[in-house]
Design a protein around this nucleic acid. Structure first.
Lengths: 180, 180, 180, 180
DNA sequence: CATGAATGAGCTTTCATTCAT
DNA sequence: GATGAATGAAAGCTCATTCAT
């Protein structure tokens, strides 16, 4: 993850990865047949951790609104260094998804799963309220939320100094709730 | 642009770029000292075109709200193949901004300029209305809009099939206007 | 050494070096990070051998004069083909010292060490004799001797046919001893 | 001269030479068919200037000893920046003489001419004195003087800081005169 | 005389992958 | 499991030389 985040996929050579992990190039290829396999493993790892973060927050959320907020917080309320590296790695992965078919498939699978999750969360929220949004509108809102989250990762990594401090989660919640 | 969009920065070799432009590798290096210079030229090119698109739409916009919509439409209401390639190239550029210092500087300059533009547009809109948002709130909203736009580029390129058709501009407008 | 001596530093391509050593270009770069590292290794190698030659001759030298002669003989009484290649390589190294900072540093270190050695040897010689030379004069003589030795390498390589046969060691000894 | 002195023959590209001379690459090749021709022209130029320096000093020298000193001074009593560049260029030329046949031929011609000159000057000196040196000894001395001069150029360029200030001409004169 | 775009072969260096040990 | 030397095919870049203008 560190090599991919700091060097990018192409420049994260097996030698560099091996060094960062205090292993030898030969051993890397003993466990992963190709370099792409390492990236795939990383994608799944990051996704699992993100899901775990959401599940942890879900446990204390009792209302639909609270559950939606839990999702947003799990996605955007990051803080420490490990998170920063993970976000940088995720942006790298997103860029690789353009070019590598297998990476794209897995990436799209994760996007689809998150879209489904968001659709469910939003549907619950609208039911609790007046329920003025129809299914296509909810799906559009879910898609937009996902885009915003991905865009926040992107801007946090490449232009973090220009963004307001810790604005992301709070602002997205306000935006979505005023729209529901 | 085509080579960068379809192959990514690292895989867009001078050979590949030369072939796409029907030139020889030597000639590429006669006009650009380094490969990075090509990318820098591309960034400025794409930004200029994006600005031109916004200015064109501005001419028929008479109210603050219309001007804000003009910005969103210029950014998101893309359609033809040329646009798709440009968006893909832009995502590639964003990813490179993580690693190459000079690219990051230019990229951040463009982000800052767009943030300023959005802040101005939003301030005009709030003045026209009740004006319940203070400056930090406007800046947070501007940042969020930029993130959403970048995220839409990202998802359109990597998971376009999963997104609703032409949802982006319309949904972002609705979201922002319900928030103002 | 052979590639550098016969082709010069710039023309001694990694390919050429690899071929001469019956290796592949990739392997050269596995052991040496840059081409300059190869040159640095060569410099140290040649210097070590030259020092060893001097030490060997020192063992049978019992008087200060004999030790000075040992130095001159070690430096100039060369004969076989291996020596010729080494001398040619050394001339190439001297020329590279003009341009490459790291090479110059090492080269200057060797020059300084030899100057110190010669100063010590000459001081011993003058003590044995009447001792009419002061320290600056001895240092000037040492510098001149070093220049003569380097110049002999140069002329032997580029205009060997024009030089008298085996004149160098004998003439330098005569010159220095008539001066002391 | 500047390009060759500061960059070396291989790195002194036609483009670099053109830039230094405020000309265009095409025009260089209009006047010189190949890059080697430029070097040849430079060699002749430097040699002509060196000869002129000697002839100028000869005019005020009336005794054989004074004429020998005039030669040594013309060769070694250099001082300003132009000289430094010329010396550096000459060292570069000497190194090229190892590899390029035509360069070597011209270089050897200059060496031979200087050897003849020195033989004549030394012969005159010995006649004036007791004349204890025979022809082979004079030739050996001439060769050694030439080697010393070339070596001084070399060391002045690559390790000038380590050499005593302005020692060369004075020390060589002392050495030779104590030997005659 | 003069320009400078253009060529193509060459350079050093990087790297995923293999494999004998 | 683990090592690390070895390979060979790229990569970005340089440059003497040519040539249409």
């Amino acid at each position: 993850m560190e090599a991919m985040a700091h060097l990018g996929y192409e420049k994260a050579s097996i030698q560099a990865i091996a060094k960062a992990a205090d292993l030898t190039p030969g051993l890397i290829h003993y466990h992963f047949k190709t370099k792409q396999e390492i990236l795939v493993e990383l994608i799944n790892n990051l996704n699992d951790k993100a899901q775990a973060r959401f599940q942890a927050r879900l446990e204390t959320a009792t209302t639909p609104t609270a559950r939606l907020n839990a999702y947003i917080d799990a996605a955007l309320a990051l803080g420490n260094d490990a998170d920063e590296t993970a976000v940088s790695a995720w942006v790298t992965i997103s860029a690789q998804a353009i070019r590598q078919a297998e990476v794209r498939d897995i990436y799209q699978g994760i996007v689809a799963a998150n879209l489904a999750q968001l659709n469910a969360l939003l549907t619950d929220c609208t039911k609790e309220m007046s329920g003025k949004l129809d299914k296509p509108a909810i799906n559009a809102l879910a898609s937009m939320m996902l885009a915003t989250i991905e865009g926040c990762y992107q801007l946090a990594t490449t232009a973090g100094e220009l963004m307001p401090r810790d604005f992301a989660a709070k602002t997205l919640k306000a935006l979505v709730h005023s729209h529901l």
